[in-house]
Measured scan of single mutants.
Amino acid sequence: TETYTFDSEDQAEEFAQRAQKKGYTVEKRKENGKFKVRVE
């Protein structure tokens, strides 16, 4: 499980979609103005 942090929602969304296409489970959340994407 890895967590990635992005400054913009667009970046987080793009990353999450790519990860989902590769078959990963993706969980997105906003925390302290940053966008976190957890991938497993």
Results as ranks from 00 to 15, higher is better:
S8E: 08
S8T: 14
V26Y: 04
G33C: 06
T25Q: 11
R29V: 15
E2V: 15
V26I: 08
T25Y: 12
T5E: 12
K30I: 13
F15Q: 01
V39F: 04
E13R: 06
R38M: 13
V39C: 04
R38S: 11
E31K: 04
E9V: 05
K21P: 00
R29G: 09
F15P: 00
E27S: 13
E31A: 05
F35P: 00
E2K: 15
K28G: 03
Q17M: 12
T1L: 10
N32A: 08
K34Q: 10
Y24P: 01
F15D: 00
T1R: 10
T5Y: 13
N32G: 12
A19L: 14
T3D: 09
D10A: 12
E27M: 10
Q17D: 09
G23K: 02
K28N: 05
Y24A: 06
E14I: 09
Q11N: 05
Y4M: 04
E13I: 08
Q11T: 07
F15H: 02
G23N: 03
Y24D: 03
E13G: 04
Y4E: 02
E9N: 05
N32I: 02
T3F: 11
R29M: 14
A12N: 01
V37N: 01
E27W: 11
R38D: 09
E2H: 15
R18W: 15
K34H: 07
Y24G: 04
A12K: 00
E2G: 14
F6R: 00
T3S: 06
V39D: 01
A19T: 05
T3L: 08
K21W: 07
G23L: 02
A12G: 02
A12M: 09
T3K: 03
T1N: 10
S8N: 12
E40I: 15
A12C: 05
V39P: 01
F15L: 03
E40R: 13
A19W: 14
Q17Y: 09
R29E: 09
S8I: 06
T25F: 12
D7L: 07
V26G: 02
K30M: 13
T5P: 02
Y4W: 11
F6W: 02
A12S: 04
N32M: 06
K21A: 13
F15T: 01
E13L: 07
F35E: 00
V26N: 01
F35V: 05
E13H: 06
Q17E: 11
G23I: 01
R18I: 11
Q20D: 04
T5S: 09
K30Q: 12
A16C: 11
K22L: 15
F15S: 01
R38A: 07
T3G: 04
G23C: 05
T3V: 12
K34R: 09
K21F: 08
V37A: 01
Y4H: 06
E27A: 08
E40V: 15
K22T: 06
